[in-house]
Design a protein around this nucleic acid. Structure first.
Lengths: 198, 198
DNA sequence: ACAGTAAGCGGAACAACGCTCCGCTCTGCC
DNA sequence: GGCAGAGCGGAGCGTTGTTCCGCTTACTGT
């Protein structure tokens, strides 16, 4: 019998070999295209790059967000797991938070248009927003709480809001020398530190 | 001969009455549509609302940015002029800066998709980005300098970067109760106040 | 008043893209 | 070897941006 059988709602027949192959090919193609054309690249372009039809891409990844999530899942996961690690290894919770935010910003900045897509309210990107935030907000909250408990930053800031703010700061035309998201994120963190509005 | 004649490079014939009328109609229609459908509304929708053909809209406003700028010119101008006024009337330069930023945020938040368009790197919005920033950055710089000179905030922050940061914080899906751009902008200003990273 | 001119207008037409749908192919199983 | 159906490809539809050209009409000079 297949690996899953007894009492399962879904029979879960094993996927066909060619389907699995196509899925991998698509992921590789998408990753390559995202680098050159951003995450908004035309579906046709990705399909062509992978040498498959568009039907195939839509079957494996019904929405654009599904594809983006699949491509970046590993990196998001790594970022999420880095949270507790940094907290354990850093000099202070605030230092850990700072390092973790750096990681997140690096991730967003190096993926063309990802930050835009993350905040976009256009259809098809909802799942992206959801996945990223569901995965990373708890991690951020843990770091935030630790820093608050250590008295290093003021309480009252929600992790969700902070994450979205950081993401937003990374949005925009790439490589404008006059705009460096990192400096503004740093400013945001400084604002967190201030105990009272003076 | 027409009104202007001697030595002028351009004859500058007076515009036809119907052209002027159409331009006004278009501005009104665009303003109305922007409220309901955002600044990304289909050109056709605006043309239909104004009761004109698409050729007309493209003749009067070659790029989308031209139309957006024309619609919001008054408000941008008002915001720009409020800078010196606030500086003169407020208790302190920092208070003035804070009030001015509030004005700017209100403006962005109430126009669906404007903040997005401002930062977007897609073609057609370059002029928008340019106009807004050319007009408002000097005003912001003046307020910033005054606050620095008064010793209320640390030096080293560029007005351009701050403006883009604020604009970016206003980007995103509208009216998510968990995300309030104002709180994050406030955090940014708090960060500005901090004299040294402690 | 009126005819000539060109500024201005409308919308058909083309291109790019997202997404769907259905006839065909090929895999896995007996 | 043959069969069922999972999987595939890409034609085709709807939407939007943008251009282009023949027609309309507001001004001008007489």
């Amino acid at each position: 019998m297949p690996t899953t059988s007894h009492s399962g709602e879904v029979p879960a027949r094993r996927k066909r070999a060619d389907a699995l192959r196509n899925q991998q090919t698509l992921l590789a193609a998408a990753a390559a295209v995202f680098v050159t054309s951003g995450v908004d690249a035309p579906i046709r372009e990705i399909a062509a790059r992978a040498g498959v039809g568009m039907g195939t891409i839509y079957r494996h990844f019904p929405t654009r967000a599904d594809l983006v999530v699949a491509v970046y899942r590993h990196q998001v996961e790594a970022c999420a797991e880095a949270g507790p690690t940094l907290l354990a290894g850093a000099d202070s919770p605030l230092a850990a938070l700072r390092q973790w935010v750096d990681l997140f910003v690096d991730f967003l900045v190096t993926k063309h248009g990802l930050a835009n897509a993350l905040q976009s309210d256009s259809s098809g990107f909802d799942a992206l927003h959801t996945y990223f935030l569901d995965r990373l907000v708890p991690v951020c909250a843990q770091l935030l709480d630790a820093a608050v408990n250590a008295g290093e930053i003021r309480p009252g800031t929600h992790a969700y809001e902070l994450m979205r703010g950081i993401g937003n700061l990374c949005v925009g035309r790439d490589s404008d020398p006059r705009y460096d998201p990192r400096r503004l994120v740093e400013l945001l963190l400084q604002g967190l530190q201030r105990p009272q509005p003076s």
